[in-house]
C-alpha cells in the first residue's frame, strides 16, 4: 500500500502560550515543538497498515523550513520518506490544503492519514479539504479502522453514540485518540531518520481571504471564592448555585 500521512509541528500542549507585545501573534521563541498529538495517531496507523499489508509511508508537511522537523519526527517513528511542501506566508487553510492536494495527487496514494485537528490552530479542516479537492472520500475523527480491498470501514464518535462508515479507496482518514497507541521513536530510528530522503517542492502562499486582526488572552474568569470546607459547606454551595449563580432550580 502506498500511504501518505500529513504532519505538522506544534508547541507541546503543556506549553504556556505568550503573546508578542503588539498582540499580533503568539511568541514563537522558547517553545517546545512536537509532532501534533493527533498526527502521532495518524503516523502510527499508517505504519501499522504498511507493516501488515506491505507498502511504504510517506510523511508530508506544508510550511516553512521548521516543518522539516515534523517530517524528521515521522521518519524517526518509521516513515520511509518525506515530502516537504515549502510555503511561506500567513496561515491559510485553503492555500495549505491546495498545496498539499496539488502535490500529492499524482503520487497515487491509496490512503492519506491526517490528524483530526492540529493542536495549534485547531481547525480540524485540512484532511476534509484535501479530500474534497482531490474528489476522494474522507472519514473523520476515526477511532477504529478496518482496511479491506479497495474499501474501508471506520468508526467514529458522535454526540450520544457512535457511527460506522464505509468508504472506497483512495480515502483520507483523520485520526482521533483511541485509534492506536503511538510508538515512541527509538534512538536507532532517530539516527536513521537523518539519512532518509526528504524531497522539497515549492508552493505559493495563496490568496488571503482573511486578515488576522489580533490575538488576545481569554477573558479572565471573574474571581471565584471558596465556599467552605467539607460536608458543612454543602448547604452554602447549594445556596450560591441557586441564588447567586442561578444555575440550578
Amino acid at each position: 500500500m502506498n500511504i501518505a500521512v500529513l504532519v505538522k509541528l506544534v508547541p507541546d500542549t503543556a506549553a504556556q502560550i505568550r503573546l508578542m507585545s503588539d498582540h499580533s501573534d503568539i511568541e514563537r521563541r522558547d517553545l517546545n515543538w512536537v509532532l501534533s498529538p493527533y498526527d502521532e495517531f495518524a503516523v502510527e496507523e499508517a505504519l501499522q497498515l504498511a507493516e501488515k499489508k506491505g507498502g511504504e509511508v510517506t510523511a508530508v508537511s506544508c510550511g516553512d523550513e521548521s516543518m522539516v522537523e515534523a517530517l524528521r519526527k515521522a521518519l524517526a517513528m518509521g516513515a520511509a520518506k518525506a515530502l516537504h511542501i515549502k510555503r511561506e506566508g500567513p496561515h491559510n487553510l485553503l492555500a495549505i490544503a491546495r498545496a498539499i492536494a496539488d502535490n500529492i495527487h499524482e503520487r497515487k496514494f491509496e490512503l492519506i492519514f491526517a490528524g483530526c485537528k492540529a493542536t495549534d490552530d485547531e481547525s480540524a479542516a485540512i484532511g476534509q479539504m484535501v479530500a474534497t479537492m482531490l474528489e476522494i472520500p474522507c472519514v473523520t475523527e476515526v477511532n477504529k479502522l478496518e482496511v479491506g480491498d479497495g474499501s474501508l470501514t471506520a468508526e467514529r464518535n458522535i454526540e450520544g453514540g457512535s457511527e460506522l462508515l464505509e468508504a472506497s479507496l483512495p480515502c483520507v482518514v483523520t485520526a482521533q485518540k483511541g485509534l492506536n497507541e503511538p510508538r515512541y521513536p527509538k534512538l536507532k530510528g532517530i539516527m536513521m531518520a537523518k539519512k532518509k530522503p526528504v524531497e522539497t517542492v515549492e508552493a505559493p502562499a495563496g490568496e488571503a481571504r482573511l486578515d488576522s486582526l489580533a490575538i488576545a488572552y481569554p477573558p479572565e474568569r471573574p474571581e471565584g471564592r471558596i465556599v467552605g470546607e467539607g460536608v458543612e459547606a454543602v448547604p452554602e454551595l447549594i445556596r450560591a448555585l441557586r441564588e447567586e449563580a442561578r444555575v440550578i432550580e
Binding site: P11, Q16, I17, D120, L210
Partner: peptide, 10 residues
Amino acid sequence: EFAGKVYRTV
C-alpha cells in the same frame, strides 16, 4: 486557538 489559551480575531 491553542486549546483556548488564546483567542484570535479574524
